[in-house]
């Protein structure tokens, strides 16, 4: 199988790689040590593999790594605040917004992008966005609450 030479920009680092065209971005990112990119369905539904491409959330299981030369890919490894938790992560921690944690990185990538775009969100909108991710453990209440808490804290700090 032909290998393609590509350069990927992942979490601000450049990687020169040779990959087969069919290799999914989710698999390639995991090979690069980004094991926070979780694989849960490989058909776009569960959201566990969600990463940001040029700032927009996307399913890594529905992209081929060869497609993304020159685009900025961000995974959960880029979140956080100097090795500690950032505001959204801290809120997830404080209100018990995760249990097994398998869905969490994907959710964080979508919600991080959301919080970058919006300063205020009502509960219905948060639920709508969260509904693009499946979580089998939490029942979602605490995830929604975590987003609200992160927003409140951010508004207060501003």
């Amino acid at each position: 199988m032909t290998q393609h030479a590509i350069t990927l920009d992942v979490d601000g680092e450049r990687y020169e790689l040779a990959v087969e065209a069919r290799r999914l971005l989710s698999d390639v990112l995991r090979d690069l040590g980004r094991t926070g990119v979780h694989v849960g369905c490989e058909h776009g539904v569960c959201g566990a593999c969600t990463v940001q491409v040029d700032g927009a959330p996307m399913r890594a299981c529905l992209l081929f790594a060869v497609q993304l030369e020159g685009q900025a890919i961000r995974t959960v490894a880029a979140l956080g605040d100097n090795g500690g938790l950032d505001g959204l992560q801290q809120a997830f921690h404080d209100v018990h917004g995760l249990q097994c944690g398998f869905c969490t990185p994907g959710l964080l990538m979508t919600l991080d992008a959301l919080l970058r775009e919006r300063a205020e969100l009502d509960e219905a909108t948060i639920r709508e966005v969260v509904s693009g991710h499946l979580c089998r453990c939490t029942g979602y209440d605490n995830i929604v609450e975590a987003v609200q808490l992160a927003l409140r804290r951010r508004a207060k700090a501003a």
């Binding site: 995991r30 094991t35 997830f92 995760l98 969490t104």
Partner: peptide, 19 residues
């Protein structure tokens, strides 16, 4: 108490089987 195990999951440093 907020959970001890959260930190690694939130940072994407959980170690599930594939990891």
């Amino acid at each position: 108490l907020p959970r001890t195990e959260d930190r690694r999951f939130l940072l994407g440093q959980g170690r599930y089987l594939d990891d």
